[in-house]
């Protein structure tokens, strides 16, 4: 069997083919045409945005301010959870005034419920708000992909040293069609296959509505590549990434 972790360059074959679709071959029919038109329109919109701003907006950035993203991501990413106001401020990592203003606006619009218990304020997403499901979907797809990936990888966690989300989503420069790039470092004796990783990630892919590109190494393969200055691994580890499972230092060759 091929060594799954190896990144091979087959650029000649890749260039000869149209953009590789990671999903099953789509059944092309008359109904596919509007989808293609929408796709082209989305591309056009994206390029307009790219021309306007040096740093292209992420999906969430196009819709919400930074504070809104954090507050909505917490409240609608975990809608079953009631947050203390102070807790929300700490988790959002934003100024308390800014967070309180967002919460107040959300409460006034009926999107969240604020209840007082003694002198503590509890904030929770309002499940009966007319756009609750939509906001929850946005929080999940655009604000909290890391959470979705963590859920999907949880059954494999004991066989992994570490895993990271990297690439455009981790950088916050993702577009609607961006893949989720995930680097996984398996324990040497775990016998984890790329096939098992694809299977574990399938539900997250379905719920996120975007494809996930996993790259799997064993710990010794990963460390060897780090030591040898392998371009791909070096770039991922030097760039922005979000820890999904394990310990950030687990794969550090000096430890």
């Amino acid at each position: 069997m091929p060594k799954m972790g190896i990144k091979t360059s087959r650029s000649a074959a890749k260039n000869a083919a149209p953009a590789p679709a990671p999903r099953p071959l789509r059944v092309v029919s008359a109904s596919a045409k509007p989808a293609r038109a929408a796709h082209l329109a989305a591309n056009r919109t994206a390029s307009v945005a790219a021309n306007r701003a040096a740093k292209p907006a992420s999906l969430a950035g196009a819709l919400f301010s930074a504070t809104q993203q954090r507050v909505l991501g917490l409240l609608f990413g975990q809608p079953e959870r009631s947050f203390f106001a102070t807790e929300l401020i700490a988790l959002a990592g934003a100024g308390s005034g800014a967070v309180q203003r967002e919460v107040q606006r959300l409460a006034e619009s009926g999107l969240v419920n604020v209840t007082r218990v003694g002198n503590q304020k509890h904030v929770q997403a309002n499940a009966s708000a007319p756009i609750f499901e939509e906001l929850r979907g946005i929080a999940y797809k655009a604000l909290g992909p890391a959470e979705a990936l963590r859920d999907a990888l949880a059954p494999l966690a004991s066989r992994l040293r570490a895993s990271w989300l990297y690439g455009s989503v981790a950088k916050g420069s993702d577009r609607a069609q961006s893949d989720f790039d995930v680097l996984l470092v398996a324990k040497n004796d775990a016998g984890l296959t790329l096939e098992a990783v694809y299977a574990a990630l399938a539900p997250a892919e379905k719920r996120l509505g975007r494809s996930i590109s996993p790259t799997l190494y064993t710990e010794s393969e990963f460390r060897r590549r780090l030591t040898n200055g392998n371009a791909f691994v070096t770039k991922v580890m030097a760039g922005q990434r979000v820890l999904l499972t394990g310990d950030e230092h687990a794969a550090d060759p000096t430890r």
Partner: peptide, 18 residues
Amino acid sequence: HTLKLPPEQWRVLDRAHK
């Protein structure tokens, strides 16, 4: 379609191609 392979199997091959 040809061998009714589950996605996690053909995607490994598809990935190797990239």
